[in-house]
């Protein structure tokens, strides 16, 4: 069973469209509503998704692990992480999954820097991402082109090994660190990203570094 995990917080404008599009490419869609104050849950349910709602806002990392836990409990063979704001293109799913199966890969990591055109804001592209790559090299010890891309496909083997403990955005680096730790086979795959929101800024980046640092002592 191929399950899409969609972490969502106040995404009522996009979630219905995202869920309906995903159903053409996956067997089931799980929307983890991170305590939205709008109609995200209702719209996702109407679109046919399984909705898991956090009573308190816990962050994107926490939402993804909630989706993972659910996927493990229903015996999913593959899961895909897919943003709820509709910035990813569902047409990237099928070829990525095929490549994964053909080459016996455990994790596919989406990348905005491998050929497909994405409208990445200048500051992010030239300042934040290069810094992110250095931070990632320090904490995850993996060198990849797109450190914080939310598009990932994970097979059952990796799903059982990758346990996300970071509630916030540091989960992206944590996932890479766990890929390295468990010696999982991974590749980056070109995906298209249509920016609808700016997303992580400089403050968010500082918080990620702080979270990664303190997690070493927990």
């Amino acid at each position: 069973m191929f399950i899409a995990i969609v972490p969502a917080y106040n995404e009522e404008k996009h979630i219905g469209f995202v869920v309906r599009n995903l159903f053409c490419h996956v067997d089931n869609v799980v929307v983890v509503d991170d305590s939205s104050t709008d109609n995200t849950s209702k719209i996702a349910k109407e679109a046919g998704a399984v909705v898991i709602r956090h009573e308190i806002n816990r962050g994107q990392g926490a939402s993804l692990e909630t989706g993972h836990q659910y996927a493990r409990s229903v015996g999913a063979t593959h899961v895909i992480h897919f943003d709820g704001d509709g910035q990813f293109d569902v047409m990237d799913i099928k070829p990525a999954l095929e490549k994964m199966k053909n080459e016996n890969i455990d994790v596919i990591l989406g990348s905005r820097f491998l050929g497909k055109e994405s409208n990445i804001p200048f500051f992010k592209k030239k300042i934040l991402f290069p810094i992110g790559r250095i931070i990632n090299k320090i904490f995850a010890k993996i060198k990849i082109t797109d450190v914080h891309n939310g598009f990932r496909i994970i097979n059952q083997n990796a799903l059982n090994k990758i346990i996300i403990t970071h509630d916030g955005m540091a989960h992206a680096t944590e996932i890479l660190a766990q890929i390295k730790h468990h010696n999982l086979k991974y590749i980056e795959y070109p995906v298209q990203v249509e920016y609808r929101k700016y997303g992580q800024g400089l403050g968010g980046g500082v918080k990620i570094v702080k979270d990664l640092f303190f997690s070493k002592f927990i």
Binding site: V32, V50, R53, G59, Y70, D211, I218
Partner: peptide, 26 residues
């Protein structure tokens, strides 16, 4: 520093409770 670690640990425990409850309800 100690306080920060403690807060982070409690936050993770809160997440675990919220997650288990949410999945169980679903």
């Amino acid at each position: 520093f100690k306080l920060h670690i403690k807060v982070e640990t409690i936050a993770r425990d809160v997440t675990k409770v919220v997650r288990d409850k949410a999945i169980k309800e679903t």
